[in-house]
Design a protein around this nucleic acid. Structure first.
Lengths: 129, 129
DNA sequence: ATAAACTCTCCAGTAAGTGGAGTGTAAAGG
DNA sequence: CCTTTACACTCCACTTACTGGAGAGTTTAT
């Protein structure tokens, strides 16, 4: 299938699919006469796989690793689980950071009048080292 | 003061401070003979302001806006509050997304044996479009 | 036959820096 | 006074994961 169809079926943009092909994450055949990329069903499956993994916050590099494990019929689930657990703890750290951020910002906003006068605890706080 | 001291006192790296000066976010004087940047106390305050605002997930552009509101003695707190509230709802959206992500990943990890055999619900799930 | 829709390559840019090379300057020790 | 060390400078390239556009070729529909 052409890139447009592959993109649609994997919920990616054409540009993104082309980019994935350029960096060798997927390897569609190329029609010699037209230069058009030709995506097999397997290529499509890989694109769908990557699309999902990216949503799961796996980096492109990790997607590549997962993809090779995925393609390897003898891959062990150990490696995949390890990668996943690592991701989870990264997410946990991010969650803590974001929650703290939210708490602080919300405190500032609650104490700000939001009128036309220049008094503003948000700026006061930010300007305190 | 020199860039090293300004960096230390604002908890930024020298590289980052130089970058902020390059893009005009802060405007230290320059010693003509040595080429060294000279940061005034006011420049330092702005760096500290930016360092904090960046931690609060404000973009460089937004930092610039905040900085001009901050410098303008006649600024209203309304604009600042609006920007802050916007940031908070962005953070909320990100929190929801991350929590959902974590839930899904954690479900997958819990159902994965993590042994050397190829059965792995994580890959199974990822390969389902 | 022509127009719309699709595809291609190549170049440039995004955000917010980081890293390194090569060079010049300042402060401290001997 | 000299040398070593720490600090400063500029400039260029690289990072992540794409996105946008120009200009050109191809396929499909009318």
């Amino acid at each position: 299938m052409n890139i447009g169809k592959a993109a649609k079926l994997s919920n990616l943009t054409v540009k993104t699919v082309r980019y994935y092909a350029d960096i060798g994450l997927v390897k569609p055949l190329k029609n010699c006469s037209t230069g058009y990329r030709d995506f097999s069903d397997d290529d499509l499956a890989q694109l769908q796989f990557v699309a999902k993994a990216r949503k799961f916050n796996f980096s492109i590099q990790e997607c590549g690793e997962l993809l090779s494990l995925y393609s390897d019929k003898n891959r062990s689930s150990k490696e995949v689980k390890a990668l996943t657990l690592e991701k989870i703890s990264e997410i946990d750290a991010k969650l803590i950071e974001l929650k703290d951020l939210r708490r602080q910002l919300s405190f500032l906003a609650n104490n700000c009048q939001g009128n036309d006068r220049p008094e503003c605890p948000i700026l006061d706080e930010l300007s305190n080292a």
